[in-house]
Amino acid sequence: MKRLLLALFILALAGCAAGSNRPRLPYDYWYVGIGAPRFMEVWVESVDVIDRRGYAYFDIHGGVVAYNDKTPGWYDGGGKMMPVSNVDLPETLFVRWQSLVEPQTYKLRIDIPQWVRDEMLKPQRAYCSGRKQWRDNQYRFDISIGMAPGGIAKAWVGGPCLSNIEIGRYQAKVEPLGPSQGETNGQYAWPALEPESAAYIKQHGIPYESW
């Protein structure tokens, strides 16, 4: 009985410690979105984050991205979203991805300015076109990252019923270890492009200068 009570006491203390360590945000989680221009196929190996407390979290998102309707030029944010729970607002994001149309592997560090975190904590009144009504206490709690051939990336902050605001445009570095940190002997996630992507690139090439 004493051992059982001791175990329950330790679990209670652990629960209190975990609860006290939760970030104090006006929502349960924020989101990371990943996207790319249409036909410009991308596989994200990892998205890592250091939050404003200095805590590091690895592989919070990855895999196949969402593709926008535009090939030359950018959309204004969005993408395949992933909730990020028990993590405070981002200080720095690290992204590593495979640009399958080239193919090439890139890595990028995105330092999030303070104004972005301020924006993520600011309640807004916004018109939601889907519900056709105004709603209070809407937040821009999405950070979306768009990736294009040549290692060009952009980031936006946005939220439901709210427009996306561009954070910045970035030039990634080539990952010298290649795809999957050299663990696949140079093999990319998909050795062949989807037929529509291959046909577009064969006809139009890669519009590097449009991003």
Rank of each mutant, 00 (worst) to 15 (best):
R169I: 07
M1Q: 08
D111S: 13
M82D: 08
C161T: 00
G54F: 04
Y127T: 00
Y27P: 10
N137I: 06
S180K: 15
I201L: 12
S197N: 14
G130N: 05
W190L: 10
W97P: 12
S129I: 00
P37W: 14
Q98P: 01
G178S: 15
C16G: 06
N164T: 09
G54Y: 04
R131L: 00
W190E: 07
A66I: 04
P179N: 12
G159T: 03
K80Y: 04
P176H: 10
A155F: 09
W115A: 07
Y170T: 14
R135D: 00
S163V: 01
E91A: 12
P191L: 14
Y188A: 03
P113R: 08
W74C: 02
N68V: 15
P149R: 07
G178Q: 13
R96M: 02
Y106S: 00
M40C: 02
I10M: 11
I165R: 11
I50G: 11
Y139T: 06
G77E: 11
G79P: 11
V174H: 13
P23I: 06
M81A: 05
G54L: 05
V47T: 02
T105I: 06
S129G: 10
E209V: 06
G178I: 15
Q133G: 01
N137Q: 13
E45C: 04
S210M: 15
Q187T: 03
F39R: 05
E209N: 12
L108K: 02
F94M: 12
Y29M: 00
V32Y: 05
F39G: 06
V44Q: 01
R24F: 07
A199N: 14
S99R: 04
V101C: 03
D59T: 05
D59E: 09
K2Q: 12
R96F: 01
G73W: 15
M147E: 14
V84Y: 07
N68A: 05
V32P: 03
A198M: 09
D51R: 14
S20P: 08
A66D: 12
D76R: 08
A12E: 02
Y55A: 05
L6G: 04
E102R: 02
